[in-house]
Design a protein around this nucleic acid. Structure first.
Lengths: 215, 215
DNA sequence: TGTACATCAGTGAACGCGCGTTCACTGATGTAC
DNA sequence: TGTACATCAGTGAACGCGCGTTCACTGATGTAC
């Protein structure tokens, strides 16, 4: 019979400290940004001693990896939801792109951690792995669905890379003041986003250029 | 009559410690990455006490700003040289884009510092300011030259933003292993780069989509 | 149902570290007369 | 040309800080008999 884990009466054994630590980390990211994300800060936020996390994670890196993992899951869900929302095949890529960038804008610190975690190690970030259910494959398969079978696998791969790069760049840059007048002129954040995506010639144009080239 | 500043006989007064510190910082970035860039490390690398930099910079931030400044200058020069190299107007944007991404690939740590410095303060990074000789204006004016006068200022501005985002995204992502097979298939780094830029429909396609829309 | 005991998941104090910054200082330089 | 002196640009020791990690410990839990 376990007591309720209120602040006053938290039992000696936490119950699910691992999850609590990851949540605490996310809260710190949300409120104070990536530079505040130390192991000690996470333990503090979770109301636990600085040594406690070591019973659940080998070291700080492993905790950060867990946070990044959670981020990739959330981003994948947002993109899948966007795919389901798309009115038709031609709207697929724009919808997914908008979802990607909005996610990054809404969770900027988490987004940075997601990439930082994989920058230094040789393994890929999970969402970008070439395996079923990864966000990367979601984009590639959507692309394939959009352009039909006459485009080569290699070109679809390249277009997917191009789209990913473009979305990432847009996500990272959208905080800059430089873009504010353009945003205002176009009627808000999302209208701006859609417009920039279209000016990238982003998804459809890349495929079309290929078709034009063949014609 | 000043002695030569060899390691053994450096005079008490350095001569140009400010520049020496910025150079030392760049060397650290090149060799050990951004996480190793502390004020103390810079002083150490310059062969000077940890207090010395305070005679030339208010604090660590001001030193980093100077490093970033140097980075923006170098990037601007690379882009200007690329512009001069372009065979014709239609090649302008691709050439500049390639130069941008190659710079980021060759100086990844410096490139990160350039953006990190401006991320937290409200001012823009220098290269992105809307003033004469900035790299941003170089891109915008090249764009204008390419598309001619029938495209609106607003669209040129948007296309410039789009191009910048795309190049930044490409620069940040090009280290990922995910892209290696594609690079190999296309015959090396730069061929890959040019191909991805074209798959973005990056510069020309954005303008063309606009023209198509009007036709 | 009770009891002994191994194991699990916490505590809190301590470790050494490198950091940014300050301070009183001192050696070198340049200027006024 | 020489000298007094203000100023400049260094030194090196010290400050307090938060960090990641380790350690011996202890309270709670669960299992065997």
């Amino acid at each position: 019979m376990r007591e309720a884990a209120t602040a006053e009466s938290r039992p000696y054994h936490h119950g699910d400290l691992r999850r609590a630590l990851v949540d605490a980390a996310r809260r710190i990211l949300e409120n104070e940004g990536p530079s505040a994300l130390s192991l000690r800060a996470v333990a503090r936020e979770a109301g636990v001693s600085p040594a406690a996390p070591y019973h659940h994670f080998k070291d700080k890196g492993e905790l950060l990896d867990a946070v990044a993992h959670l981020g990739w899951d959330a981003l994948g869900e947002a993109m899948t939801a966007a795919k389901a929302r798309a009115a038709d095949v031609s709207a697929l890529m724009t919808e997914i792109g908008v979802a990607y960038v909005l996610f990054a804008q809404q969770h900027p610190a988490l987004y940075r951690v997601m990439y930082d975690c994989s920058r230094d190690q040789e393994s890929l970030p999970e969402g970008m792995e070439d395996k079923e259910d990864s966000a990367y494959c979601l984009v590639r398969e959507s692309f394939r669905k959009m352009v039909g079978p006459e485009i080569s696998d290699e070109d679809v791969e390249l277009a997917t890379i191009a789209a990913w790069c473009a979305a990432h760049g847009l996500a990272e840059m959208s905080g800059f003041r430089q873009f504010d007048p353009a945003k205002a002129a176009l009627g808000g954040e999302e209208a701006f986003l859609r417009s920039v995506l279209s000016h990238l010639g982003m998804f459809p144009a890349a495929a079309r250029a290929k078709i034009d080239g063949q014609g």
